[in-house]
Structures are given as structure tokens and as C-alpha cells.
């Protein structure tokens, strides 16, 4: 794999495509590095490297063509036995802040390390979940703070 910043860049590019949120919004959560570290920790260098290489190739080949990108992602990543479950996990992590344990079949076939476990990445990852702006609400008790603000409509950036 490339150097650390190259890996983060590739992870952000993939994440932006998978979630539909811009790099600016993804970085704005402060969770890009922890999510990359969590993914690496759960699946190992090999699977993460393969995922990011496939993503980079798909993005390069699509060259800005949305349809080609969509098809490439589905064909080369989301329907791939090894990369698909990891990509879906990355999506879920961005939206709810939790890493879900990979399916048993995946672990039987591809795990190179101790079983990963379901866990909330950090207290911040819960409040920074993309779930909240997507549904037009604030994470209860964590954003939209201030006495009595529950009585006003949430003010937030929609995607």
C-alpha cells in the first residue's frame, strides 16, 4: 500500500462514493482516521489494501462517469465475496459509528487475525454518525444542545 496519507486519501474517496457525503463532510466528522484504523484493525493490511486498490481502479476507470462508477463498484467491490462485506461495514460505520462483526462466512474464508468484534468506535463516532443529518435530526442529547432547544426544529446541514 501507499504511504499513510495515500491510504487515507483512498479511504476517503471510497467512503465519499459509498456514503454519498462529500470529503469535506466526512473529514468534518473528525472520524476518518479512527474509521480507517478500525477497518485496518478488523480486516488486516491485505484485505484493506485490496479494497482500496479495487476502489482506486474503479474510480480511475470511471473517470467521473457516475454510471460507470456505480457499475464498477457493484461489480468489483459490493458483489465480491471478500471486499463486499468490508465495504458494507464501512458504510454502516460511517452512518452509525459502529463496527459490526463481519459475517461468519467471511471470517471463515478471509480472516487473517483474531475475530473482530462489534463495537462503537468512540463516543464521538456515535454523535458524528451520518445517520443524523440523513434523517434530518440531531443525535438525542448530544447535538442541538441548549436549554429548551428541543422545542425548535433541528438546525443542521442536510446532505
Amino acid at each position: 500500500m501507499a504511504d499513510d496519507s495515500g491510504v487515507l486519501e483512498a479511504f476517503l474517496t471510497l467512503s465519499a462514493t459509498l456514503t454519498g457525503y462529500s470529503r469535506f463532510r466526512l473529514l468534518g466528522t473528525g472520524q476518518a482516521e479512527p474509521y480507517l484504523a478500525t477497518t485496518l484493525d478488523a480486516v488486516g493490511d491485505d484485505a484493506l489494501g485490496e479494497l482500496l486498490s479495487a476502489s482506486t481502479a474503479v474510480h480511475d476507470e470511471a473517470a467521473g462517469d457516475e454510471r460507470a462508477l456505480d457499475q464498477g463498484l457493484r461489480a468489483r467491490i459490493l458483489s465480491d465475496d471478500k471486499l463486499g462485506p468490508v465495504a458494507r461495514n464501512v458504510i454502516k460505520m460511517w452512518f452509525v459509528g459502529t463496527w459490526y462483526q463481519l459475517p461468519q462466512e467471511w471470517r471463515d474464508a478471509h480472516a487473517s487475525r483474531q475475530p473482530d468484534s462489534t463495537h462503537v468506535v468512540s463516543p464521538a463516532s456515535y454523535t458524528e454518525g451520518l445517520l443524523w443529518p440523513t434523517i434530518g435530526a440531531n443525535p438525542p442529547g448530544a447535538k442541538g444542545q441548549g436549554y429548551g432547544t428541543w422545542s425548535s426544529p433541528p438546525t443542521l446541514d442536510l446532505p
Partner: peptide
């Protein structure tokens, strides 16, 4: 001043989003 406190948290959200970007 009550809704203004809500604005302050909003300002914090916007500021942190900016600060986390290169």
C-alpha cells in the same frame, strides 16, 4: 438569549467541521 444558546452550539458544529479539514 435562550435560542441564542442553541445558536452557539450550532456555531460550534460549523467551526469543528471546518477545523477538521485540511
Amino acid at each position: 438569549l435562550m435560542p441564542a444558546v442553541g445558536d452557539m452550539f450550532r456555531i460550534k458544529e460549523l467551526a469543528t467541521q471546518i477545523i477538521r479539514n485540511p
